[in-house]
Simulated scan of single mutants.
Amino acid sequence: MNSNQLNFAYKVRHALNENLDNLPPSAAEKLASARKIALSRKKKESRLRVFVPQRFFAGQTGHFFSEPLSWLTRMGLAVPLVVLVIGLSSIFRYEQQRHINDTADIDAEVLADELPLSAYLDHGFNAYLAKRGE
Rank of each mutant, 00 (worst) to 15 (best):
F65E: 02
N7S: 15
N2K: 07
P80E: 02
Y128Q: 01
R98P: 00
P24M: 12
N4R: 09
S118I: 15
K11H: 06
Q54C: 09
S46Y: 05
S118H: 13
F125S: 02
T103E: 03
A108M: 06
V52E: 09
D113N: 07
S89D: 07
Y94H: 05
L72W: 09
K42D: 04
F51V: 12
A15C: 06
N101I: 13
E18W: 14
V82A: 12
S33I: 15
K43A: 15
H99T: 05
A104K: 04
K36S: 15
G133S: 12
F51S: 04
A127L: 11
K43V: 14
L31V: 14
S89K: 07
A32I: 13
A130L: 05
A34Q: 08
I86F: 12
A32S: 07
Y94K: 01
F56T: 12
Y94R: 01
N4S: 10
L20F: 07
E109S: 13
A9C: 13
A28R: 06
N2M: 10
P80C: 09
D102W: 09
A78E: 01
L16E: 01
D105C: 05
R47Y: 12
M75H: 02
S89G: 03
Y128E: 02
T103F: 10
R13P: 00
S118K: 14
Y128N: 03
A112N: 08
A130S: 12
S3Y: 10
A112H: 11
Q97P: 01
N101A: 08
L88M: 10
S46W: 05
F8S: 08
H123R: 01
E29T: 12
E109P: 00
K44N: 04
Y94P: 01
S66E: 07
V82S: 08
A130W: 12
A119D: 02
N101P: 00
I100Q: 00
Q97L: 14
S66R: 03
M75W: 12
E18K: 11
A127S: 07
V83P: 01
R74S: 04
A9Q: 08
F8L: 11
L121D: 00
G76H: 06
